[in-house]
Amino acid sequence: MGLLYNPIINWLIALVLLFYGPVLIIVLIYKVLGFTGYMSLFRYVGGNSFIYRLDPRTKILLAIILTIVAAMTIWWVSAIFLAGVLFLYAFLKDPAAKMRVAGPLILSTFIGTAWSESLFAPFNYLYSIFGHHVTFIYLLPSVLSSLGVTQGNSSASVLLVGKAASPVGLTWEGLIYGLQISFRATASIASGLLLIFSASPSDILRSLEKSKLPIELGFTLLLAASSIPKVLESSMIVINALKARGVDVVPRGSRNPIVLLRRLGSSFKVVVLSLTAIIILTLKNAREIAIAADLRGFRANRQRTYYHELRLTRMDVLTIVILLLIFALGIYLSGLPGMGAVPYNP
Rank of each mutant, 00 (worst) to 15 (best):
residue 1 M to D: 09
residue 6 N to C: 03
residue 8 I to A: 11
residue 10 N to K: 15
residue 15 L to N: 12
residue 18 L to S: 06
residue 20 Y to E: 07
residue 21 G to R: 01
residue 22 P to M: 06
residue 24 L to N: 02
residue 25 I to G: 11
residue 25 I to E: 10
residue 27 V to K: 10
residue 28 L to P: 01
residue 30 Y to G: 01
residue 33 L to D: 04
residue 35 F to K: 05
residue 38 Y to S: 08
residue 38 Y to M: 14
residue 43 R to S: 12
residue 47 G to Q: 07
residue 50 F to R: 05
residue 52 Y to Q: 08
residue 58 T to I: 08
residue 59 K to S: 00
residue 64 I to F: 13
residue 65 I to K: 07
residue 65 I to M: 04
residue 66 L to V: 10
residue 72 M to H: 06
residue 75 W to K: 01
residue 77 V to E: 06
residue 78 S to H: 02
residue 78 S to A: 14
residue 83 A to G: 12
residue 84 G to W: 07
residue 87 F to N: 01
residue 87 F to I: 12
residue 87 F to A: 15
residue 88 L to F: 13
residue 89 Y to V: 05
residue 90 A to Y: 11
residue 93 K to R: 07
residue 94 D to K: 11
residue 97 A to Q: 15
residue 99 M to I: 14
residue 100 R to A: 07
residue 101 V to R: 05
residue 103 G to D: 05
residue 107 L to M: 09
residue 109 T to Q: 14
residue 112 G to V: 03
residue 112 G to H: 04
residue 113 T to E: 10
residue 114 A to S: 15
residue 115 W to H: 05
residue 120 F to C: 04
residue 126 L to E: 03
residue 136 F to P: 08
residue 141 P to F: 02
residue 145 S to E: 14
residue 154 S to E: 13
residue 155 S to N: 10
residue 157 S to T: 14
residue 161 V to Y: 13
residue 172 W to P: 00
residue 173 E to Q: 15
residue 175 L to M: 13
residue 182 S to P: 03
residue 186 T to H: 05
residue 187 A to V: 06
residue 193 L to F: 08
residue 194 L to I: 06
residue 195 L to R: 08
residue 197 F to H: 08
residue 197 F to S: 09
residue 198 S to A: 13
residue 198 S to Y: 09
residue 203 D to G: 04
residue 204 I to F: 05
residue 206 R to V: 14
residue 210 K to H: 06
residue 210 K to E: 13
residue 211 S to F: 09
residue 212 K to D: 04
residue 214 P to L: 08
residue 215 I to H: 10
residue 215 I to N: 11
residue 216 E to T: 15
residue 217 L to Y: 11
residue 218 G to I: 01
residue 224 A to N: 01
residue 225 A to F: 13
residue 226 S to E: 08
residue 227 S to Y: 10
residue 230 K to G: 08
residue 231 V to T: 09
residue 236 M to V: 15
residue 238 V to L: 02
residue 239 I to W: 05
residue 239 I to N: 09
residue 240 N to K: 15
residue 240 N to M: 09
residue 240 N to I: 01
residue 241 A to W: 01
residue 241 A to G: 10
residue 242 L to H: 11
residue 245 R to H: 07
residue 246 G to L: 05
residue 247 V to L: 09
residue 250 V to A: 03
residue 251 P to T: 02
residue 251 P to L: 00
residue 252 R to I: 00
residue 254 S to A: 12
residue 254 S to C: 06
residue 255 R to V: 06
residue 256 N to W: 00
residue 258 I to A: 11
residue 262 R to Q: 08
residue 263 R to T: 01
residue 264 L to I: 09
residue 264 L to F: 06
residue 266 S to D: 12
residue 272 V to I: 14
residue 274 S to K: 01
residue 275 L to G: 14
residue 280 I to Y: 09
residue 283 L to V: 07
residue 287 R to E: 13
residue 288 E to D: 12
residue 293 A to Q: 14
residue 294 D to N: 14
residue 297 G to I: 09
residue 299 R to D: 06
residue 299 R to I: 03
residue 299 R to T: 05
residue 308 H to Q: 14
residue 311 R to I: 03
residue 312 L to M: 13
residue 314 R to Y: 11
residue 314 R to N: 14
residue 315 M to S: 12
residue 317 V to C: 04
residue 317 V to F: 12
residue 318 L to I: 14
residue 318 L to M: 15
residue 323 L to H: 00
residue 323 L to M: 09
residue 324 L to R: 03
residue 325 L to V: 15
residue 326 I to D: 08
residue 326 I to S: 04
residue 330 G to M: 01
residue 331 I to Q: 12
residue 335 G to P: 00
residue 343 P to W: 12
